[in-house]
Nucleic acid binder design. Structure first.
Lengths: 345, 345
DNA sequence: CTGAAAGCGCTTACAG
DNA sequence: CTGAAAGCGCTTACAG
C-alpha cells in the first residue's frame, strides 16, 4: 500500500484545465476575488471533492512565513504549564499558527540547541517559559533578532516582552491574610532566586512584612533548591530548625507547599492548627489536598493567551516595543490557614 | 531594527567562493564525505562563525520530508496527557522530528479540521489521543494513507497501531485487591463506553467479579458521563441509590475517584471505613489526596515513547502491519481501600 | 480575468 | 571532488 502521492496545484489545474496559478488564487481566500466567480466555484468544487489541501510548507517557503511558533518549556509535567500551553495554542490557532512544543529542561546549552533547531525550522517567534533573570539563551535569541516573549517568568532588562502574574501583589495578599488571622511569626520558603518568580515573591514577602511593621525577628526567609515537593520538604525542615517560632508559611509555590505538608505530617504537626501554609499557583486539585490549600490563583490560561498575542504583534511589527503584561492574581482561602494557637509564641 | 535576513547556502557559498551545492553537501553529515576534507573544514568553520542554520523547510520541500509529527490531544489539562506528550516528544527528538501539538477537544468535526491543517503542513504522521472505539476521524486518516497511531485509547478494527495500557488486567488487579480485603459488594463507575478505556475497564471489571464468582446482585456497574470529577460525583450519587449495599468502588479513573471522594464527604461517609475507592492512572498527587488514593499506575511516559517509536517505524516502512502494544499496569495500594466494616451487608 | 515566468532555499542526479 | 542544472509546490509581480 504505497502512500498515495499528495495532490498539488498542478494536478488540480490539469484536471480542470486552467493554469495552476489560477487555482492558487482561488485556494487563498484573500486572492479569490481576482478570479471569475464561475471559475472559482468550479475549482473550489473539485478541490473539495478531491480533498486537495495546498502545501503550506511550499507556500511558506515562497512567502517566508512558516506559520510556526516555538514553545520552549522547562518541564511539561509541572502542572502550571499545560494550561499556559493551552492558552498559547488557542490564540495561535485563531491566526493560523501552530506551536512546536519542546520540553527543554533546565540546561541552558540544551535549550540553545533546541532553539537553534527551531530557528532552522523557520519558526516566526518563540515563547519561552524557561527564562531566568539573567538568561544567556534569551540574549542569544535577541541577538538573532527573532521575536520572543517570555511567559510566567519575566526578565530583568526589559528587552523582551513578558507575561507574568503580579508576584509582589501575590505575596502581599498572602501576608495580609496571614497577619489578618493573627500570625506574628511568618516565614517564606522562596523559589530559586535565579528565577524572577522566586526573586520577586521573596521581594514581595519582605515588602509585605515590612508594611505590617513586623520586627526583623518575627519573619524569616529560606530558599528552596527548586520548585518541587522534595525541595519544599527539605526547606521546611531547615525552616523549623532556624525559626522555631513560625506559625505560618508562605510557600514559593504549591509544590513547595505540598512539601511542607509532607514534613509537617512527618513531624506530627497539624496544618493549620500548628502551622498555616499558603501556596502559589492554585494548581489543579489544590482544593483536594488535606487540608485544602489556601493559595494564590494565577491566570494561567490568560497568561498563555496574552503571550501568544504579544508574540503575534511582535511578528507583525518587528520593531515594536517590548512590553510587560502583569496579570492580577487572586488569593483563594481554603483550609490550610487559620488563626495561630492562643499559646503560640 | 529590521530583522536581519537569515543566511542561505548561497550567501555562505559566495563568502567562501565555492558552489552552494558544495556547502549543502557539507552541512549534511551524510554527504559530507563527498567533499575534500580541507574544503569541508573551511565551510564548517565559516558556517559556525556566521551561525548558519540551513532552512529545514526548504530542505523538506525538496526531500518531501517535513520532520513534523502531529499530536492530537482531547484536553491537555487532563493530567494523563502531559507525560504522554513528554514521552512522544523525547523519542521524536532523538530522530530529528518535532511534534505539532493541538488541543482538539472532543468534537469530531473540529478534530478533522485540525487534522486537515496538519496534513496541509505536511506532517509525516499523526499520534491521536482522541480515538474512540468507532472513530470517523480515524477512518478519515486511514483513507488519507497517513501513518497514524493511537495512544492511551485503542481502536477496534486493528487497522492502526495502538499503544495502550492493559485495561482488563487493571480491573482484575483492582477487583482482586478489593475481594482480598473482604469486600462482597463491589461497584464500578465506568468511563464512557464509546472510549476503549471505558469499554474495556468495564469489561475487565465484569470478568473479574465473575472469576470471583460474585453473585449478580453482589456487583453493579454504572457509567459516568465523562472522565471528570463532576461526572464521577454524579455517578457516585446514582450508584448509592441503585446499589446501597456497596462497600467498594472501582472508579473508571482518578478523576472519577475524586468525584466519589467529593460525594462521600458530602454524605458524611468515610473512605475507606464506609466505602473503599480505587482509581486508575495514578495521576500526579494521587498520593496527596485524603485518603491517599489506591489506584492503578499506568506507564504514561513509556506509552508516549512507544507510540512515537511505532509511528516512526510506520513512517519508515509505510506498508508495515498495525500492531497493538499493551503496557502492563500496576496496582498501587494506598489509604483509600480497607476491609469493609464488620456490620457491612 | 488568466497565463507564463521567476524565485523562495534547498537536494541530488548528472557531468566533468 | 566540484559545479551546473533541475525541481520540490507554492505566490505574485508582470503581461496580455
Amino acid at each position: 500500500m504505497p502512500e498515495r502521492k499528495r495532490l498539488t496545484l498542478k494536478d488540480l489545474a490539469a484536471e480542470i484545465d486552467v493554469h495552476y496559478s489560477t487555482v492558487s488564487r482561488v485556494m487563498n481566500p484573500a486572492t479569490r476575488h481576482l478570479v471569475a466567480q464561475d471559475v472559482a466555484a468550479r475549482i473550489l468544487e473539485v478541490a473539495e471533492a478531491r480533498g486537495f489541501r495546498p502545501n503550506r510548507i511550499a507556500a511558506g517557503l515562497r512567502t517566508q512565513r512558516s506559520g510556526l511558533v516555538g514553545v520552549v518549556l522547562p518541564d511539561i509535567a509541572n502542572p502550571v504549564f499545560p494550561p499556559i500551553l493551552a492558552g498559547i495554542e488557542s490564540v495561535l490557532a485563531q491566526k493560523g499558527y501552530v506551536p512546536i512544543v519542546v520540553n527543554a529542561g533546565t540546561d541552558k546549552s540544551r535549550q540553545r540547541f533546541i532553539i537553534d533547531q527551531m530557528i532552522g525550522r523557520q519558526v516566526e517567534g518563540l515563547v519561552l517559559a524557561t527564562a531566568e533573570r539573567e538568561d544567556a539563551v534569551l540574549d542569544y535569541c535577541i541577538r538573532q533578532h527573532i521575536p520572543v516573549v517570555t511567559v510566567n517568568r519575566g526578565e530583568e532588562t526589559g528587552r523582551v516582552s513578558c507575561v507574568v502574574s503580579d508576584n509582589l501583589l501575590a505575596m502581599r495578599l498572602t501576608v495580609d491574610h496571614l497577619v489578618g488571622l493573627g500570625h506574628r511569626h511568618i516565614a517564606h520558603i522562596a523559589g530559586p532566586a535565579a528565577l524572577s518568580t522566586g526573586f520577586l515573591r521573596r521581594e514581595g514577602f519582605v515588602q509585605a512584612v515590612r508594611r505590617h511593621r513586623l520586627r526583623r525577628d518575627a519573619w524569616h526567609v529560606i530558599e528552596a533548591a527548586s520548585y518541587s515537593r522534595e525541595a519544599g520538604k527539605l526547606a521546611c525542615a531547615q525552616l523549623l530548625e532556624a525559626f522555631p517560632a513560625v506559625t505560618a508559611i508562605a510557600a514559593g509555590n504549591d509544590l513547595v507547599a505540598m512539601g511542607c505538608y509532607d514534613l509537617l505530617r512527618e513531624r506530627g504537626l497539624d496544618c493549620p492548627a500548628d502551622i498555616s501554609v499558603v501556596g502559589h499557583n492554585d494548581m489543579p486539585f489544590a482544593d483536594a489536598l488535606t487540608p485544602p490549600l489556601t493559595t494564590v490563583r494565577i491566570a494561567v490560561h490568560e497568561m498563555g493567551e496574552e503571550a501568544a498575542r504579544l508574540l503575534l504583534r511582535q511578528i507583525d511589527k518587528p520593531g515594536s516595543d517590548a512590553v510587560t503584561v502583569q496579570l492580577t492574581p487572586q488569593l483563594i482561602v481554603r483550609g490550610s490557614t487559620a488563626a495561630p494557637r492562643d499559646d503560640a509564641p
